[in-house]
Amino acid sequence: MFFDLYNYWIVFVLMMIGLYMVINQSNLIKKLIGLNIFQTSVFIFYISVGKVNGGSAPIFSSTETLYSNPLPHVLILTAIVVGIATMALALALVVRIKKAYGTVEDSELQEKDPKC
């Protein structure tokens, strides 16, 4: 039972690790790494869902009759691109934050501005 569904367990564990890092880490870059792990867990979910037991790669051939589902893989290519764009934007923001504040530690950043 446990090992039959091990792919879901991996997804679940990765997702929680990522989310925990986003919430718990004080360093802005480490938060982003957590966010990336969080997103990747969903990618793995999609990819493992597309696998059909005993199915071959979805390339048409005369000897194969059973194929894996290629659609989730295509979808996740799109999601990966979106993830890269998000990460690039986030890192650009961190660079600007570092320039403006001189630090990327969340705990120090909170003290630099007057409370409003």
Partner: peptide, 25 residues
């Protein structure tokens, strides 16, 4: 502070979108 806000919004927004993606999957 706009930079910091944009960063925080990005984190929250991405988590929201990823939840949606999980649901879609």
């Amino acid at each position: 502070r706009a930079l910091l806000t944009a960063y925080q919004y990005l984190i929250v927004g991405t988590i929201g979108a990823t939840f949606l993606l999980m649901g879609i999957g």
